[in-house]
């Protein structure tokens, strides 16, 4: 056991002693989200909105709990869950083996592919690692996309630049500091339709490699709360069955994201 885990364990024990044995009885679930990932979660006029948020509200209604939302920067979103700042991550987080070492996940509530985006005047047509050798590629840090670039493209000879937010990545693509970016197809579809996104286009194939991109997007939950995982799984099945999910899906996208 390393020093850090020992400290973490001690902190957890103290936290458990303070909160008592109320872990089984959920009345309020605090939901952590990023708030900078349109159209899935974003802040508009001081209010947090998006597909993730609507899904979260629907799930909470089915679970008969009250939900509150906390906005948290992406690179600290798992540590803050483990530190008990909130109880669940509903922030378009893909279910991957690497993350499963740290936290538990519900079943998926959507699954969209990853794809490259480049400028309209770009000569890139082939997005294989060999073809992008020597190019500068960008992605948001701590994401499945950044992991894929680091492990596959950086090793094949591309330069990889990682940004704290997806917006910063977009900015540097527009500015010409990166030749292409790898991101979620639906997020990019939304951005390409904005004024800033008019410069750019999709390029190459869609990526779904399970090893890197996981099995879809789920709710992230501490491993100590298996009953909460079960509650979310049941609620996801319910909104899928009774048409609530379909309604939310149609509000945002003209295609099925499940």
């Amino acid at each position: 056991m390393s020093l850090a885990t020992r400290i973490a364990a001690a902190a957890l024990m103290i936290a458990a002693a303070v909160t008592g044995a109320s872990a089984k009885d959920w009345k309020v679930v605090r939901v952590g989200t990023e708030g900078a990932y349109p159209p899935f979660n974003y802040i508009e006029n001081g209010e947090i909105k998006g597909f993730d948020i609507d899904i979260a509200k629907a799930l909470c209604a089915k679970m008969k709990v009250e939900c509150t939302f906390v906005a948290q920067d992406w690179d600290g979103i798992i540590p803050a869950l483990l530190a008990g700042k909130y109880d669940a991550i509903i922030a378009s987080m893909s279910i991957t083996e690497e993350r499963k070492k740290q936290i538990a996940f519900s079943n998926k509530y959507y699954n969209t592919p990853a794809t490259f985006v480049t400028t309209k005047d770009s000569k890139i047509t082939d997005t294989s690692p060999e073809a992008l050798k020597g190019k500068v590629l960008g992605a948001q840090a701590s994401t499945i996309h950044s992991n894929y670039l680091e492990d596959v493209y950086a090793k094949a000879g591309a330069e990889v630049k990682l940004y704290p937010k997806i917006d910063d990545t977009h900015l540097d693509l527009v500015n010409g500091r990166i030749d292409a970016l790898l991101s979620d197809k639906v997020v990019e579809l939304e951005w390409l339709n904005t004024k800033d996104g008019a410069c750019c286009k999709f390029v190459g194939a869609e990526y779904k490699d399970k090893k890197y991109f996981g099995e879809g997007v789920g709710v992230g939950i501490r491993k100590d709360d298996p009953e909460l995982v079960a509650m979310f799984n049941k609620a996801i099945a319910e909104i899928r069955a009774d048409g609530t999910y379909k309604k939310i899906n149609e509000k945002y996208f003209p295609f099925d994201v499940y």
């Binding site: 390393s2 020093l3 973490a8 540590p79 690497e98 992991n147 990682l162 540097d172």
Partner: peptide, 25 residues
């Protein structure tokens, strides 16, 4: 924060893959 992999940049990268606070140490 502007994508330079200095000591802090590398630390953040390592943390984002391992989620182990130790890297900050």
């Amino acid at each position: 924060v502007i994508t330079v992999y200095d000591l802090m940049g590398v630390t953040r990268l390592a943390f984002s893959r391992s989620y182990d606070m130790e890297v900050y140490l």
